[in-house]
Write a protein that binds this DNA or RNA. Structure first.
Lengths: 221, 221
DNA sequence: CGGCCACTGTCAGCGAGTTGTCAGCTTGGC
DNA sequence: GCCAAGCTGACAACTCGCTGACAGTGGCCG
């Protein structure tokens, strides 16, 4: 899960980044409005945490430009001012949630989880693909009921593949979702990771599409 | 089944009332703290849904006054603020459950059912997970009936884990609930605390999920 | 007032788990 | 058969969580 964090207050940005990281997200943090817009326009994120008061380009404008360009990731707005009109405008412009400052970190995490789940169209907490079941609450994957002991990175990989079951996921896409964006391009870390996950699973559900990427077959069941 | 709903936010009150009504409960709704206290003190309810931030009389004070007057109905606390001390104090003061806002209606209903069932079954407000039983009124934990002598901080830790049994709780989440906000982030206090709790328990119910957090498995029993 | 004790956070060190890298190998497609 | 893509085992650096020791604090009792 990769999150774009747009916040110009260094202290808040730091705390939020820490919390998100602790909750298992990969975080790209930017401070500047135009920078934020560019990132959101060119990269795939699972969600965006967006502060409204920004230098160079206002948060609401960014939001509108993204939506106009058909960028569909869920957006959680942070606003220093608790102004009601701003909230309405934010929601109207295509934000999914609105959190007035000051907020409690646990609440941010809860709402973030909620909008990500909602955007995945996934009302149920567990996700089952074939013999595999992923329970995000327990952060655990089971195969035929047997728990599989995965490391954090392995869990994220499998989770991503399962959430996109039935479609080919490229290595680049995986890299972008598992690592911060300045990660070495020609590393074979993904291949190694896939190998490790495969070894932990009894029957291998991960199919290699040579030259394209990986795919887990079978729809949600 | 009659429920007392104490909630001053009209929007939330309306939604909850609707949901409770839909689930077949008779609902008395009050907005004002003193009003709430009087109702709870003079009428018989099967459960109370109590918001903490109230005009005129604070939710926690009401709760304590009820318990002091031997009013035994199960109480579910709604907490708008994510304040750790409030939550801990709520549970300590004799609440049976607490639900941080924002919450899903389904979850509120589920927890309400659970605490009603519990109170109907054995008139206790204790929470049992596996061999562990937690009695919030006495601030006491027993394992297989044997009392465990925990320090306040240890008790809070275990209490939090038990109240969130079946789901992974991150260290950051625990830190936020056990310490004030400006607590040092890279302290290993949580780890030490977990170690101390484990040493006091005979069979260790706390599972470490390296890279994720801690989890107590097994649902309420 | 002094000593004792329980509580709690800090610290350093350890051991195990995790993860990216690399080199050499296998495999699939042309 | 060739070659690039992908796989694998080994490895080293690193991270994470656990532990025992310790020190500061505050309460309690003689």
């Amino acid at each position: 899960m990769k999150i774009l964090l747009v916040e110009d207050d260094a202290r808040i940005a730091g705390e939020v980044m820490l919390a998100l990281h602790g909750a298992g997200y990969i975080v790209d943090a930017v401070v500047d409005g135009e920078d934020a817009w560019f990132r959101g326009d060119t990269e795939e994120y699972d969600a965006v945490v967006l502060d409204l008061g920004l230098p160079r380009m206002d948060g609401l404008s960014i939001l509108k430009k993204w939506r106009a360009n058909d960028r569909r990731f869920p957006i959680l707005i942070l606003s220093a001012r608790g102004s009601w009109s701003e909230r309405v405008e934010g929601i109207d412009s295509g934000a999914d949630e609105y959190l007035p400052k000051p907020f409690h970190m646990a609440e941010l995490l809860a709402r973030l989880r909620a909008i990500i789940r909602r955007s995945a169209g996934n009302a149920t907490t567990t996700l089952s693909i074939g013999a595999l079941t992923l329970d995000p609450r327990q952060m655990r994957v089971t195969q035929d009921g047997q728990p599989i002991n995965l490391s954090p990175q392995e869990y994220r990989l499998l989770s991503y593949l399962m959430h996109h079951a039935g479609r080919v996921v490229t290595q680049i896409e995986l890299t972008e979702h598992l690592y911060a964006q300045d990660f070495e391009r020609d590393s074979n870390a993904i291949e190694v990771l896939v190998g490790r996950v495969r070894r932990k699973l009894r029957a291998d559900p991960i199919e290699t599409r040579r030259g394209f990427g990986y795919i887990i077959n079978g729809s949600e069941s």
